[in-house]
Amino acid sequence: MEELQKVIVEFAETSKKTKFYFKDIEKAVQKVLPDAKMRDIKKACTALINDGTLIYFSTGSSTMYGLKGRGMTEDPE
């Protein structure tokens, strides 16, 4: 789990984009850890959401993940 979380955070920090679909994260993780299971990646993402490292970004119809502090991660005022 910790290894998965580390890979996810590394991807989120280094990717050109600041928001990712779950599938983007899944692909990135499986590049580094080919045996990583989708369910485990989701659990790792949920843990990162819960500890505040990642945030959800929702358009209403689809949802993306982002790294808190990178890109637009606060409410526009």
């Binding site: 959401i49 819960n50 945030i55 959800y56 970004f57 929702s58 358009t59 209403g60 949802t63 982002g66 637009m72 991660t73 606060e74 409410d75 526009p76």
Partner: peptide, 17 residues
Amino acid sequence: KHGGIVGVFGYGGGVIG
């Protein structure tokens, strides 16, 4: 303008910015 990071803690849905 639609969408954003609003939501309640731990939930990825239910609130639409």
